[in-house]
Computed example of a mutant assay.
Amino acid sequence: MDISHESLHGQDITILGPYRPWRYHKEQGGDGSNYPSHSGRILDLKDSKAEGIDYFCTFISPRIGRYSLVAAVPSHDPAKTVSGIKSLAAKLEAAVNCKNVSSLVVRHTKIQKLADGGNRSVDIHLGSIAIENAEPIAGHSILLLDDVMTTGNSLLACRKLLLDAGADLVKCVALGRTTY
């Protein structure tokens, strides 16, 4: 993996590699034979395929360290309660000694996807996501996961909400960073 760090509004986000959107890859004349493998693993995870979930679990689980909780950034659509990133959080809970609290980070209002031209400011996320129950979060260190980071605003919003709910520390990790 091509691990990097990016600072957004003074917050460090760990990025496990670049993500090239399939649509863009095809528009540039690419096909499956030359699609970047890390991007392919992310698409596998987004499609909830075991090989994508297992790939990222195998990489993250020995590095989870001091984080007693793991959480996933929710989908833009509150009706989508199952996702690959949530499945990864559940698999990490089973693989290491951490508790998955993804169900407590809830999108209550649907927002337009950024890929479709939606406004994805931190304020939009803060107004559409809530922490359902702060009690299990208070006093813990949390590993917060997102599948693809384009602006980073969903990670920043969820981080703020978790800290406001009493988390001691929230470490943001994006499996991929959108590149064009």
Rank of each mutant, 00 (worst) to 15 (best):
S39H: 09
D47F: 00
K110I: 11
V105L: 15
D54T: 09
E27H: 10
S128N: 11
V105N: 04
S102V: 01
S39R: 12
A130I: 14
S83M: 00
Y67F: 14
K80Q: 09
E51F: 07
I124C: 12
P62D: 07
G30C: 06
G84L: 02
M1D: 09
T81L: 03
R63V: 06
F59W: 15
A95Y: 00
G65W: 01
V82I: 05
I137V: 15
G176Y: 07
G29N: 07
L45F: 10
H76Q: 03
L143H: 10
D77I: 00
S48V: 04
P21L: 14
V101I: 14
N34D: 15
Q28H: 13
R63T: 09
E27N: 07
N119Y: 13
E135T: 14
K86I: 02
A95E: 03
L69K: 07
C172K: 07
V101N: 01
P136T: 12
A50K: 08
L69Y: 03
G52P: 00
P78Y: 03
R177C: 07
V101P: 01
T58W: 02
L126V: 15
R107A: 07
V96I: 06
C57I: 01
S37H: 13
G52Q: 04
I131T: 09
I53E: 05
D146F: 12
T81N: 02
S87C: 05
H76P: 01
I13Q: 07
K160D: 14
I13M: 08
I111H: 02
D12Y: 01
K99W: 04
G32V: 12
V70A: 05
D12C: 05
A115Y: 06
S48E: 12
A90L: 06
G152E: 08
N133A: 13
E135W: 10
A79W: 04
V106D: 05
C172D: 09
Y24E: 12
D164C: 10
V105A: 08
I60M: 11
L175H: 11
E6M: 14
L169E: 14
D164H: 08
K86Q: 07
A79R: 02
H76R: 00
F59G: 02
G10V: 11
A71N: 05
N133K: 14
G127S: 15
V73R: 01
A50H: 10
T109V: 14
L175T: 11
I60W: 06
G10P: 01
R120Q: 13
S103L: 05
L114G: 06
L45E: 03
A130M: 12
S102H: 03
S128E: 15
